[in-house]
């Protein structure tokens, strides 16, 4: 036992140089270049730059980093039922949510957020007036987040924001005081479609699916050209289906969470 543990540790110490020689694959889901070996100089050594950059180099190029990250993801997900990255929230029944779209609603005070939203709406209202003077029309929509349409798939009820209002709620409130004629409201449309049993968003991606895109496109085209909108819209049924992982699924790694999603995204020929 004693000798086994000692040998195991000695192996751990040699794994990095061994991995460098053998060449172990790296994780590609970060979309960034690995840190390179920093240039050495006495000045850079004493001002701390060299040490800092060397640490980044070592972290990024640690030989078995990719399998270790995979192992960590597997343990986090399968043992602790926890998302391997704090950017993705794992919901019920395989639904994934992008944390930042939720985080924005909750981390700032309502007063500050409301002020920012009112400023934006006022500017849009001014823009609409300017366009009208020029004989043009502004058509505006705010695409609802997946979290707005499918809150029931959160792992547990999300805490209310500081004032219990989402960014979208604040936007609608601002529109009451500074109305924009060309605003197309999509949330009610998508919620209606969802209540009829149609899936509107991908489970493992941030985007809406082909049905969601179709509903949103129709609503916008109807606003732009109420009489002849159908001339601009045609959904191809024979467009080839490609199967691939959703963006959120790729972020948490290959954990066998879903079997992929069907993308058939071409709407307008």
């Amino acid at each position: 036992m004693r000798n086994f543990i000692i040998i195991l540790f000695l192996l751990l110490f040699t794994v990095h140089p061994t991995g460098l020689i053998v060449g172990v694959g790296s994780d590609d889901s970060e979309n960034r270049a690995s840190a390179s070996m920093p240039d050495f100089s006495v000045d850079r050594l004493f001002n701390g730059e060299f040490i800092q950059e060397f640490e980044s180099y070592f972290n990024d190029n640690f030989s078995i980093r990719a399998p270790l990250i995979s192992a960590k993801k597997w343990i986090d997900f399968h043992i602790f039922r926890t998302s391997p990255t704090n950017k993705v929230l794992i919901g019920k029944d395989g639904w994934l949510f992008y944390n930042y779209t939720i985080l924005n609603y909750h981390t700032q005070s309502c007063e500050r957020r409301a002020r920012a939203v009112i400023t934006t709406v006022k500017r849009l209202q001014m823009l609409e007036r300017e366009l009208e003077r020029a004989g043009k029309m502004l058509v505006l929509t705010v695409a609802p987040n997946k979290a707005t349409i499918y809150p029931e798939y959160f792992p547990k009820p999300l805490p209310l924001s500081r004032c219990g209002k989402s960014q979208y709620d604040l936007f609608l409130e601002a529109l009451r005081y500074f109305p924009i004629k060309g605003f197309v409201r999509l949330d009610t449309l998508l919620l209606d479609a969802k209540s009829s049993g149609e899936p509107i968003y991908f489970k493992a991606d941030t985007h809406w699916n082909i049905r969601g895109a179709e509903l949103a496109s129709k609503a916008l085209l109807q606003r732009i050209s109420p009489e002849s909108w159908e001339n601009f819209f045609r959904l191809e049924d024979d467009f080839p289906i490609r199967k691939r992982k959703g963006g959120l699924e790729r972020m948490i790694g290959d954990l066998g969470l879903t079997s992929g999603i069907n993308f058939r995204s071409k709407v307008i020929p």
């Binding site: 970060e30 979309n31 980093r65 990250i69 960590k72 343990i75």
Partner: peptide
């Protein structure tokens, strides 16, 4: 060690 190796891991949503 896996946690340490994951310390600088920062997945990117739009990498695809």
């Amino acid at each position: 060690i896996a946690l340490l190796a994951s310390g600088s891991y920062n997945p990117f949503i739009y990498f695809q």
